[in-house]
Amino acid sequence: MNEVIEYIVGTLIIISALVVLIASVGIVRFRNLYARMHVVTKVSSFGLLLLLIALNLLSMKFRILIESLIIFHVLIFLSPISAHVTAKVALWLNENPSAPDKEVEETKEKE
């Protein structure tokens, strides 16, 4: 029984690491600021949920369960608020929500 749990935990760790890798590839590939915010709030918290489940399967203790519930609560209910504040500032700085990024034009100062 103990060996089966260890095999399951090892597979869960590799899957969640791949999910976090996919999320950070999406950060680079997406062209729009708001689309990048989707990736940060959803995919990353999904990967951390898998990691916390693996940790709880490995050590069956009540204290670990309570502490990981607090961590997951912080991730779920505080990351939408920070995304809201950032999106509001970006909207206030006149960023068009559906247009792709503009390339930064480097102003060459002539002496």
Binding site: V20, S24, V40, A90
Partner: peptide
């Protein structure tokens, strides 16, 4: 390109650091 992009990138790197500590 803009400053909110950098805020989002910092957020993602902090999530990855949390994952490293749990591993």
């Amino acid at each position: 390109p803009s400053l909110p992009d950098r805020v989002v990138a910092l957020d993602q790197s902090a999530v990855i650091i949390v994952g490293i500590i749990i591993c």
